[in-house]
Design a protein around this nucleic acid. Structure first.
Lengths: 204, 204
DNA sequence: CTATGCTTCAAACGATCGTTTGATACGTGA
DNA sequence: TCACGTATCAAACGATCGTTTGAAGCATAG
């Protein structure tokens, strides 16, 4: 009897997501992962091939979904969106993803880890599966902020992405108060971030 | 003959800083560190006691300096500083530190890793050695932005700290161009960040 | 010169890492 | 019922991890 209604693969992915978020990619061992998933140690290499491939799969699963939602939110905007709405299309899907299921909250933390890892292989993977989305948003922000030079625009979007990563991953000093759920906390973070970023993007 | 004019301890600290920045705390082994430092493997446990203590020392060395400079810059501001100047007092010392010596650039990356690690022990250490500085800056920002409620102020400072961490650690998508040194790149990042953050703090 | 205290050294410790192996269990179509 | 492909299992592989050990090196004080 397996200890869950989900398949071995799914259980591994979810346990890996949680543990990678908590201890990092090097810090979480396959023995921890398979033990948490209630599967045999060899299952990872059987289903995924290696630990590195497992890490990639953890990303692919959620990143595909995040990309889809962000592009969908972008399309919904219409011809002349406000800067707030465009920013929300970028930020809110990450928030929603973080709200779903067990591991959603963990994933935004994993994503932030990926930035920190500075691993070239991982970077390449992210830019391949992520670059076109950022390009789309850059285009929209460009038309909404026509006074900004190309390079200035890139810098500011980069700053927004960084602040978002940091805020969504709950890295900050602000501690969640008692009685405030993690979802509510994240919702607040998104609101403050959008307000801040709108002003930052419009600076000068 | 030792292979450097510096002491064993110093060489370990510098090698550790670089390798922790590159591979993370779990990802960089003591064998890598001592090999890069050209010292015996046992030297780490002899001089520092353990790997964890070494990690703490890596932080303490630079953080003390960063704190000192930030507080000094804050004192230099005078009675009624501009928001730009106050922000510069927070941001520029990090930039200057990153410019010095071999490992300065590495340290801001290590600092960013610490945020990502989400390790409670490390967090406690950081808040103990860092909290009072942040409090001072919060006070100054509070008088410069009297229209903001307490909580709103905390959120915005948190966002600034996050964006700074991210930008200084060079995690962003913006790649340094050929012919631009790492120092110049970081200088540009600081300028853009200050401009962005001033507007973000003043939002609404 | 000898003795003392600090430092460095090669070597080994047990633990844990990612991965592989070969046997076993299970479901499905012939 | 039997054979076959998929999945799971306990066990072990060699490698590497952080740490410890005890001897050797080396400067300085008596």
């Amino acid at each position: 009897m397996s200890s869950s209604q989900f398949s071995t693969k799914q259980r591994i992915l979810e346990a890996a997501e949680t543990l990678f978020a908590r201890h990092g990619f090097a810090g979480a061992s396959l023995r921890q992962v398979t033990s948490a998933a209630n599967v045999n140690l060899a299952a990872v290499n059987y289903h995924f091939g290696s630990k590195d491939k497992l890490i990639e799969e953890v990303f692919r699963r959620r990143l595909d979904e995040l990309n889809k939602r962000r592009l969908h939110a972008l399309e919904q905007l219409g011809e002349t969106p406000t800067l707030e709405d465009a920013l929300a299309a970028f930020i809110r899907p990450a928030l929603e993803l973080a709200r779903e299921g067990e591991g959603g909250g963990a994933f935004v933390r994993v994503l932030a880890r990926a930035y920190a890892e500075h691993n070239d292989q991982l970077r390449k993977f992210l830019s391949e599966n992520y670059g076109h989305v950022l390009k789309q948003f850059t285009k929209v922000f460009g038309t909404l902020l026509p006074q900004l030079k190309r390079e200035e625009l890139y810098w500011r979007i980069d700053i927004v992405a960084g602040a978002l990563t940091y805020a969504m991953a709950d890295f900050g000093i602000i501690q969640r108060r008692e009685g405030v759920t993690e979802q509510q906390h994240r919702e607040q973070a998104a609101e403050h971030l959008i307000r801040f970023a709108v002003a930052g993007l419009r600076a000068e």
